[in-house]
Design a protein around this nucleic acid. Structure first.
Lengths: 342, 342
DNA sequence: ACACGCCGTCGATACGCTTCGTCGATACGC
DNA sequence: GCGTATCGACGAAGCGTATCGACGGCGTGT
């Protein structure tokens, strides 16, 4: 492996000049720069990351703390991971995976060893054992998710409250006066990921404004639970029923349950789901969905942390940013008055 | 951040002694070791990764090259990523993500910068542009997937051929004499990921031995294509039909298509799918599935590369390992002779 | 034509660790 | 009793880069 010394030798300059050509921190004449660049090219020189980190106290690596593989959400998780990694590269950083099974110590370890310059925490719960550590660390930390007490923390998340509002608005505008809202899996709710309550708050607020009746029923991953929840809604609905299922798996099971009852989205029942755009198109009736824009959330998370890194700010920061959710209209929402007529 | 010098000072020993306590490469008396360990504990000392890498020429980081986010497989991809990261930690290594959108240069970069000691490549295709680079790199590389020419490469993958055999065996043993095999998505097939043909080979071999008729039909992610494929199979099947769907999304659409034709797995049609164990249980009729054991494949990939790293072998290696697939019997396969009687 | 200033380059040092050579102290043999 | 082998700890030399101070050469002003 060639070193910057080798490059300097080949270009006939001092090692420090090579360094300055690379960093641009001092003016270099056009002529010598060309020489150095040619030598770099020819030797396929890459600066040694370890040495660079040692001397500059910057690793250009961001630690990404991924949650403990909970079977649920695997697909959406990967979407975050993948776009975080891509975005990081655009900002000249790499991503190091920190798995949660190492526990909270993992965070201390990677920061202590100075393997990375900062951390992004995914799936932050309302009360998260990682929060005290996040606050105590002397490196920038960005949370994806909003804990109950976000003081001294930098947070970014999808705007679940807005998502709830939009979904209710949409169904109300179509003419539904009663709407069933199927909750997340109990595992998620118990984990206190407070986006659940933010979403609910959004739906309630919109319902109040619009004079619509909301039925919040439990979700789950088994057919039995969802069946009961669906029946509950059906019993209390006059006319064509409407459902909002903000979670992927729950939505999937809801659709099967409806199908078993002879209900077809877009024909005699309205459904707003949450599949990814690609998936939503694959249903017999393309599904109208809430889009929480995970890629955008990921992008912002990286941008924020890179900003903090560049500004080199030492002290604790505090900020909270929400990425607006959107509703994509496909074909699974009906106008109940019209449906009745047919 | 405390350094090993600080630890040495606190323990009243030389800095090099601290290093030897940590590495164990030289004998240290019980007494001084205790002192040093106490100082480490008290100062919460973590060795600086950059300095360590610089001096030892070992980063203890493995680069994981993830494919260019192809909407498909997100969930299964994450399963690999997650278990690779966990396993790596058990071997005292970390995982650095290398996204494919950086192109083949990404590999050269991370190795050139000596950010990592070795690479794991995921989703290796039959003819993969990364292969020449993999061969030319002077660090260990492990491929997940089997390229057409595996010479000078270290490969690990699920045993798709065995999976094909098992699936056909299973349906044949149940009494089916005609079996429809729905292929992967065209995108996958075109990518020349040769596990497709390995799977097909396995099915054909088993079919030949058992005197069973196989109908290989095209897969896809749209209902139209799968519908045609299903009809093709139904037309050529006498009695109860049987299907094998080795890919998750295709399987999902197959089930919807069958449902629309009044066919229910476990009642009047046999299906062997490929959902993850958790998902398979969620169907109205729990689905019998092929399990390719991705976590096991991941685990082996890490073990192999760590082995290569420890042995410090310079020259190129060559090996090929297959993780046996299994079939999990649930309730979606019927005995057609009995079904007829009912 | 001379002094001064600025741009562009060089040399040296520090970053924190691993590792090799060395040396003091203890335990043993004769 | 002294010399020798052994164990344990020390000091110093890099590893490859960033960065600071210094310095030489050019151009500018008079």
């Amino acid at each position: 492996m060639p070193t910057s010394k080798d490059v300097a030798l080949a270009a006939g300059v001092a090692q420090s000049t090579v360094s300055y050509v690379l960093s641009g921190k001092r003016p270099i004449s056009e002529k010598t720069r060309k020489k150095v660049e040619a030598a770099i090219e020819q030797l396929t020189y890459h600066p040694n990351a370890g040495a660079r980190a040692l001397a500059s106290r910057r690793t250009h690596v961001i630690g990404l703390v991924i949650p403990f593989i909970p079977e649920l959400h695997m697909a959406s998780l990967m979407e975050f991971v993948s776009s975080i990694a891509s975005t990081a590269r655009k900002h000249d950083h790499d991503i190091l995976l920190v798995t949660e099974d190492e526990g909270a110590n993992g965070l201390r370890r990677v920061v202590g060893q100075q393997i990375c310059d900062g951390l992004i925490l995914m799936q932050v719960a309302g009360e998260d054992e990682r929060l005290p550590i996040a606050r105590s660390l002397k490196v920038p930390v960005v949370l994806i998710g909003i804990p109950r007490d976000p003081s001294d923390l930098v947070c970014i998340d999808a705007d679940f409250e807005l998502a709830g509002q939009l979904a209710v608005n949409d169904l109300a505008a179509a003419g539904h006066s009663t709407i069933g809202v199927i909750a997340w899996q109990p595992e998620v709710v118990e984990r206190q990921v407070n986006y659940v309550e933010r979403f609910v708050r959004g739906t309630n607020q919109a319902a109040k404004e619009l004079g619509v009746k909301l039925l919040h029923v439990v979700g789950g991953t088994d057919l039995g639970t969802i069946s009961k929840s669906v029946d509950e809604v059906l019993a209390q609905t006059k006319g064509q029923p409407a459902f909002i299922a903000p979670e992927g798996i729950v939505q999937e099971i809801l659709l099967r349950t409806l199908s078993a009852r002879g209900l077809t989205p877009g024909t005699n029942v309205s459904v707003i789901g949450s599949a990814s755009p690609g998936m939503a198109e694959l249903y017999p009736v393309p599904l109208s969905t809430i889009d929480l824009r995970p890629r955008e959330v990921s992008r912002r998370a990286v941008e924020i942390i890179c900003g903090l890194l560049e500004s080199g700010s030492e002290g604790p920061h505090e900020s909270l940013e929400l990425v607006p959710a959107t509703i994509t209209h496909r074909s699974s929402v009906i106008r109940p008055d019209q449906a009745k007529a047919s």
